[in-house]
């Protein structure tokens, strides 16, 4: 252990009720893909990873959900914080991860993560991707379950190559990984069921 107990930042103030509230906000995001949801009670966490990603992991990660951290987030502070508050195993093997925290500029963000099988598509990873901003940047059109007709979504910091990978991921349906984009205390979910057009319609 690199830190001491006194140097750890606090987790959820009221674990049962805060986790319930945060889960409902995450569920709202999942059932309305493209909607930017603000997690009002997201704790500050250890720094490095956003309050939204921190809140997501405090709510849903535990000893049953191996976590993979991109090198930029794989610091002693983050590891100690998540291990202490969630008990989640932090692993090196992408294929075994239930959750992963990545940066928007990581190369090959989809590579190597479990996308489930045809018979068990639920045995797949959920990727938390930290981005500079939500609601700004090139605007793309998304369609699929949870969206009435179509929705416009803008996520800063992702290039066309990322969106081509995202289209490939959608083509695997019902397999594929689920994506959550986080910045500050905001979060936007794109489950594998959603198709997003690769070419943007405009810039915002």
């Amino acid at each position: 252990m690199s830190g001491t107990l006194s140097s750890l930042s606090p987790g959820l103030a009221d674990p049962s009720h805060d986790a319930q509230q945060l889960f409902r906000e995450v569920l709202d995001a999942f059932s309305h893909p493209g909607r930017i949801v603000t997690l009002a009670d997201a704790p500050q966490g250890p720094g490095m990873i956003s309050p939204a990603a921190t809140a997501y992991l405090l709510t849903l990660a535990d000893r049953d959900t191996p976590l993979w951290l991109a090198p930029s987030f794989n610091t002693p502070e983050v590891r100690d914080y998540l291990r202490f508050h969630t008990g989640t195993p932090i692993i090196e093997d992408r294929a075994a991860a239930t959750f992963a925290v990545l940066s928007h500029d990581d190369a090959d963000p989809f590579e190597g993560f479990a996308s489930g099988t045809d018979t068990y598509p639920d045995r797949s990873a959920t990727l938390l991707i930290e981005v500079p901003a939500l609601g700004t940047g090139p605007v793309r059109t998304g369609r699929g379950p949870g969206i009435k007709g179509e929705t416009q979504l803008a996520i800063a910091g992702l290039d066309d190559w990322f969106w081509r990978q995202c289209a490939t991921n959608h083509a695997l349906f019902p397999c594929g990984v689920d994506l959550i984009f986080t910045t500050g205390s905001q979060l936007l979910a794109l489950p594998r069921s959603i198709s997003v057009e690769v070419s943007p319609c405009t810039s915002r």
Binding site: S31, L60, D122, S124, T126, P145, F173, P174, S193
Partner: peptide, 9 residues
């Protein structure tokens, strides 16, 4: 976690 998977598929 199961509910979120169910919503995704």
């Amino acid at each position: 976690r199961a509910i979120l998977k169910a919503v995704a598929v």
